[in-house]
Design a protein around this nucleic acid. Structure first.
Lengths: 337, 337
DNA sequence: AATAGTAATGCAAATGTTTTCATAACTGCG
DNA sequence: CGCAGTTATGAAAACATTTGCATTACTATT
C-alpha cells in the first residue's frame, strides 16, 4: 500500500531499531534477540519490505545469479539441459540469467559482457568453441566459467559434458559393423557448432576405420523436423539411395523417420536411421530410435554442482566427462546388400 | 590482468578525469567532449572495466532484467514461448531471469519473491491461476506484471495469450461434428494447470452442445510421450474402445499416435487423434496431426512488447487475445459407426 | 579585449545495504 | 550489590555508481 517502496530504513523505524539490526536479523538471525526479531518481522510484513539484492551486491556479496548462455532454447536439445541445470542451481539459492545467441559467437560475446555487467557469480556456455574475445573477457574478469555439453581433455576452460567426437564414433562404428557403405549424414549446419562438427568427424573416422572407402553423402539441414523430412525425401529420390541415414541429432532423425513413413519405405528393413542425443520421445517413437545417449539431465545437474562449487569454494574446477552411450533400438539393421 | 576488479574510480584515474565524467561518458555520451571520451574509452579497454549494474540499480535506475517464471522449461510447450519472449525482450536490452516451479503454486510464490529481491523491472507468469499471495505481492510492490499463455477477459492482471477454453471448444466441436460419441480425453494433471483444465472444460461443453450425451472417458497422464503411449495402449485394450482420442496437448498426441502405430490401428480410419498446441513437428508427423494452434511465438513476441511498454511508459497494459485456430490435418476423420 | 553565453568537467551528496567497532544492556557469581 | 563476561544494539564507514549544482574552460560577439 505504501507508495514509495519500503527500504531497510523504513523497516528500522517501524520496528524502532537501527537499520543494522534489521540487516542482521536477515543475515545473522542468531545475533538478534528473538523478541526484536519478532518485531522486525512484523514491520517487514506490514510494510511489504523486500530486500534489495542490488544493494547487497555492491558490497561484494554474491549476486546470487548464474549466467547461462545457450545457442537456442526452443529446440529440444538444450531444453532438458537448461531445466536440470536450473533445478540444481536453484536448490542452492541461485537464479539463472538466461540468454540465447542463435549460434552467433559474436552475439555470445556481447551476451557474456552483459552478464558480467549484471555481476553474475558464474557463467556457463555451451560447447568448447567460442570467440577468443570471449575467452579473454572471462579470463580477465576471473568470473567462474564453465563449458557445458561438450567435453574435451584440452578444453580451454573446465567443462562438463560428453565427448561428441566419441558419440559420432559410436554411431559410425555401429553403422559400419552393420555393413552399411552408402551412408547419408544429415547434419545441422556445422558453423559455430563444434558439437555437430565433432560428431560428424567421429562418424567419418569410424566408418573409414571399419570398412574401406565408404560413400558418405553429407547433407546440411537446419535443425527441424520439417527440414530433415524434406531433406530425406530428396535423398531417397536420388538414384543412389543410401542404405543408412545417420542424423546429427534425434530431432533430425524423427524428421527422417516421418519422411520414410510417408514414402512407405520400411525402417529398418530397407533403410537404417540413427540419431544422436536420445531426447525425450526417441525411445517411444515407433519404430524406436537407435541413437547415442548424451545424458543431458546428468550434465545439467553435475554442471550445476561444479558451478556452485567453483563459486563458493574458490577452488579451480575439474572437468567432467559424462560418456555417451550407444543405444540400439529398432531403427538400425544390417545393410540389405 | 589487474587483480582487483577495475571500478569507475580506477578508470577515472587512468583517464585523468573525475568519476562523474566517466559515468557521463557511458550514460550521456553527448555531454562529454569527444577527445576525453576517447581517452576514457582507452582506459576502459585497458583496464577491462565493466559497468556494475548493481550499483546503478540502487539509484532507481532500472535493473534491465525481466523475471520469467514458468512451470517447466524442458517440455516443448513453453520452450518456444520462452525463446520468442527472450528474443524480443533482448532486443530492447533486457535480460531474462528464468525460473521454473514444476506446477507448484507455492514455489511460484517463492520464486516471485526472489525475482523481486533482484529488482526485476517486470515479471511474467504462465497462466491465470496463481496463489493469492502471489497476486497480493505483485500488487503491493507494483512491479509491472503480465500473465502469459492463457487469456481471459476478467483476468486479475493484464494477460497475453490464447483462450484455452476456446481451444478446447474448437476441438470438441470438430470431433462432435465428425460424429464421434465415444471419446477419450487424455489430459495432463489438472491441478495447478488452468490451461489444461479450461481446455478440458471447453472440450466437454462443445461435445455436449453438439451431440446428445457423449461418453467421455477422462484419463490423466503425466506430460510425456511415454506416458501417453502407455495410457493409450491401455485405453485401446478396453472393451469399449473410443473412436476418438483427444489429447490435452500435442506431445500427448504424439504418444497416442505411436501407441496406435505399434498396435497396428490405423489413424484416422479406425480412430481419430487430436492434439492442442501445434508444436514444432506436429505438422510433419506422419500422419500429420489435427490440432489447435496456440500461437506460441506470437504470444512470446507480443508479450515482450507489452512488457517493455509497461516498463518504459508507466501506462497500464492492455490484455491481448491471440486466438487459437483449429488446424485440420490427417489424424481426424468421421466416426466409423 | 571584455563580456556573455555555452560547453565540459568536477564536487559532493545520495542510493540501500552490510560490517566493523564501540557501546549499552543484561547475566550470573561472589 | 558490584563486577566480569556475555549478548544485543547502534553509529558510521564502506560499497560502486549517478546526478544536481557549481565551477571552469572555451567560443563568439561586440
Amino acid at each position: 500500500m505504501t507508495d514509495k517502496k519500503a527500504d531497510i530504513l523504513a523497516v528500522a523505524k517501524a520496528a524502532r531499531v537501527s537499520p543494522s539490526t534489521v540487516s542482521r536479523s536477515f543475515n545473522h538471525p542468531d545475533l538478534v534477540k528473538p523478541s526484536t526479531r519478532k518485531r522486525i518481522d512484523r514491520a517487514v510484513r506490514r510494510l511489504g519490505y523486500i530486500r534489495n539484492r542490488a544493494a547487497q551486491t555492491i558490497h561484494g556479496i554474491r549476486s546470487g545469479t548464474i549466467g547461462l548462455i545457450v545457442p537456442t532454447i526452443d529446440q529440444a536439445i538444450f531444453a532438458e539441459l537448461i531445466q536440470s541445470f536450473s533445478d540444481a542451481v536453484e536448490e542452492t539459492g541461485f537464479t539463472i540469467l538466461l540468454a540465447s545467441h542463435g549460434y552467433s559467437l559474436d552475439r555470445e560475446y556481447a551476451l557474456t559482457r552483459k552478464m558480467l555487467e549484471h555481476r553474475v557469480d558464474g557463467i556457463a556456455l555451451i560447447g568448447l568453441d567460442h570467440a577468443s574475445d570471449t575467452y579473454e573477457l572471462l579470463a580477465q574478469q576471473n568470473t567462474p566459467a564453465l563449458l557445458l555439453w561438450n567435453y574435451a581433455e584440452d578444453a580451454p576452460l573446465p567443462c562438463v559434458g560428453s565427448d561428441n567426437y566419441r558419440a559420432g564414433h559410436l554411431i559410425g562404428a555401429h553403422i559400419a559393423a552393420l555393413g552399411h557403405r552408402r551412408i547419408a549424414a544429415v547434419f545441422p549446419p556445422l558453423h559455430g557448432n563444434d558439437r555437430a562438427a565433432q560428431r560428424l568427424e567421429g562418424l567419418t573416422d569410424a566408418v573409414l576405420a571399419n570398412g574401406g572407402t565408404p560413400d558418405i553423402l553429407q547433407r546440411e539441414t537446419p535443425y527441424s523436423v520439417a527440414d530433415a523430412k524434406q531433406a530425406v525425401a530428396e535423398l531417397m529420390a536420388s538414384p543412389r539411395r543410401p542404405t543408412a541415414i545417420v542424423c546429427g541429432n534425434d530431432v533430425l532423425a524423427w524428421g527422417a523417420l516421418h519422411a520414410l513413413a510417408r514414402l512407405g519405405i520400411s525402417v529398418p528393413d530397407q533403410v537404417t536411421v540413427t540419431g544422436i542425443g536420445d531426447f525425450h520421445g526417441s525411445q517411444d517413437f515407433e519404430p524406436a530410435l537407435t541413437t547415442v545417449r548424451i545424458p543431458a539431465r546428468a550434465i545439467g545437474a553435475r554442471a550445476a554442482q561444479t558451478m556452485t562449487a567453483m563459486i563458493t569454494t574458490e577452488a579451480p574446477a575439474q572437468s567432467l566427462a559424462l560418456p555417451p552411450e550407444l543405444i540400439i533400438r529398432a531403427t538400425s539393421a544390417p545393410a540389405s546388400t
